[in-house]
């Protein structure tokens, strides 16, 4: 087929113009991470899926992708959990309620929640990977009867770097949530598990036929988590993974996020694990 026949005719749109949105709340999560509550103009809903991302920009500073940390079940505003690591995020950290940021999106494929419906939901989150996973966790908690058990494994470098500690308390107390947390190196006050996130997986109570898992964390984590899940016998088709890449445009144009034939900003960031096997550079 000719190239121009492969694409349906559609009206061109301005892909790079942000919607100026208001910061409603700024809440520090740790020394490095901050949770921003953002409102689109006119009370519009973002209309996202858990696992999707938005492009956030500040004029004169830049634009970068951030995963959405709130569940779409919570209307009116959305939340972004952002770590201070570079130019843009350092300037974002100076924002106060009432300040404006540019928003584009939501973009990409999030977690296919329909595939998790009626199933036990296993979330494996490493470090800042909890940010997008929290969207799914709260989605499940808000629609509790549509899902089976909710199992959360969360690993962090240290107890000082744990995110959403107040919500963690409520997950811990919730009898419907099987919550596990570990830190690589604990401070003297830390009384919980110590060790990398994979140490949590052998002890999990899993109904293998009924469990669907979503993994998100730093690049080094994936291989080891996959091995641990495999040794528990969780089939590949029950695993979804959210990948991080440099997504500059968010709309499959700029080429930065490409892994083999796949654009992370379009086909991802959440992938079905069997689809990732053909992408040599993915993991």
């Amino acid at each position: 087929m000719k190239l121009n026949e492969l694409v349906p005719q559609q009206d061109p749109v301005d892909l790079y113009l942000p919607v100026m949105s208001e910061i409603r709340d700024v809440r520090p999560l740790t020394d490095l991470e901050t949770l921003y509550t953002v409102a689109l103009p006119d009370g519009r809903d973002l209309g996202h899926q858990p696992g999707q991302f938005v492009e956030v920009s500040l004029f004169g500073v830049g634009e970068a992708p951030f995963s959405i940390s709130s569940s779409p079940t919570r209307k009116g505003v959305f939340e972004l959990g952002i770590r201070k690591v570079g130019l843009l995020t350092e300037k974002l950290a100076e924002l106060k309620p009432g300040d404006k940021v540019g928003i584009r999106g939501p973009f990409g494929h999030g977690i296919p929640v329909e595939k998790f419906r009626g199933k036990d939901v296993l979330i494996v989150a490493g470090g800042i990977g909890l940010v997008p996973m929290r969207s799914m966790i709260n989605y499940v908690l808000d629609r509790r009867d549509e899902f089976g058990r909710l199992i959360i494994c969360y690993g962090s470098r240290s107890d000082k770097e744990l995110l959403f500690t107040d919500e963690m308390e409520s997950w811990r107390r919730d009898p419907g949530v099987d919550f596990h947390v570990t830190v690589d190196r604990g401070s003297p006050e830390w009384e919980g598990n110590t060790g990398v996130i994979t140490t949590l997986i052998p002890g999990l109570e899993l109904d293998l036929g009924k469990t669907v898992c979503c993994v998100c964390g730093p690049p080094v984590m994936y291989r080891f988590v996959l091995l641990a899940l495999k040794s528990r016998g969780l089939p590949d088709k029950s695993i979804y993974m959210s990948l991080e890449r440099r997504m500059k445009c968010g709309v499959g144009k700029c080429g930065h996020c490409q892994i083999n034939h796949s654009y992370v900003c379009q086909d991802g960031p959440v992938y079905h694990y069997p689809d990732l096997k053909s992408l040599e550079e993915a993991l």
Binding site: L3, N4, V13, D14, L15, G252
Partner: peptide
């Protein structure tokens, strides 16, 4: 240019290029 047309039309059609 056929290839670029494809890129800037697929998924989201981009105004800047297509104009």
């Amino acid at each position: 240019i056929d290839r670029l047309d494809y890129n800037f039309s697929q998924g989201h059609a981009e105004r800047n290029y297509l104009t």
